[in-house]
């Protein structure tokens, strides 16, 4: 299937089986291994990417569903050597331990801030309810997202 979509800000024109799992396409065909496979059934959030501004599981998506859309993976956040506000906050707030859940968490947080730049604690909790982290009690992660929201809004104003 011939597909046209935007990946991390760049136009893509590819020919790939439409039913190919998006996670495999990203990791194996595009060699972007930042997106992880944690459970393959949409329960852990490690494979989260952003499609048309919404956080989705790439393990539950096929490449055909990208058509005409815009896909962002973790690799697409850093721009010109500058980390995204969320990435900076995760580093600052010690929210990274083993790191395996990190890219999924960051993408979910990014999607949250797209639609809700001023999330409450409750909204943050709910937004990451589908992203599992076994190395922490989610405290540092929630604080990072709050911090990132604060800093992003500060920059804008």
């Amino acid at each position: 299937m011939k597909l046209n979509f935007i990946l991390n800000g760049e136009n893509m024109n590819i020919d790939v089986p439409g039913e190919r799992r998006l996670l495999d396409f990203i990791r194996e065909d595009l060699h972007l291994t930042g997106t992880k496979e944690g459970c393959s059934v949409g329960e852990c959030g490690a494979c989260t990417v952003i499609l048309n501004n919404k956080a989705i599981h790439s393990c539950m998506t096929v490449v055909g569903q990208l058509e005409g859309g815009e896909l962002i993976t973790i690799e697409g956040l850093e721009k010109n050597g500058e980390l995204d506000a969320i990435q900076k906050s995760f580093i600052k707030k010690s929210a990274i331990q083993c790191g395996f859940c990190t890219s999924g968490m960051v993408m979910t947080a990014k999607a949250l801030l797209f639609s809700n730049p001023h999330p409450t604690d409750e909204e943050i909790k709910k937004a990451i309810s589908g992203n599992l982290c076994r190395c922490s009690g989610y405290k540092e992660i929630k604080e990072s997202i709050k911090d990132a929201a604060y800093n992003s809004n500060k920059e804008e104003s």
């Binding site: 690799e75 980390l83 990274i96 790191g99």
Partner: peptide, 15 residues
């Protein structure tokens, strides 16, 4: 921040 934080938060670290 933890060792390799930059690599982990950008998806560059290879497991």
């Amino acid at each position: 921040s933890n060792d390799m934080s930059y690599g982990k938060v950008t998806g560059n670290v290879k497991y």
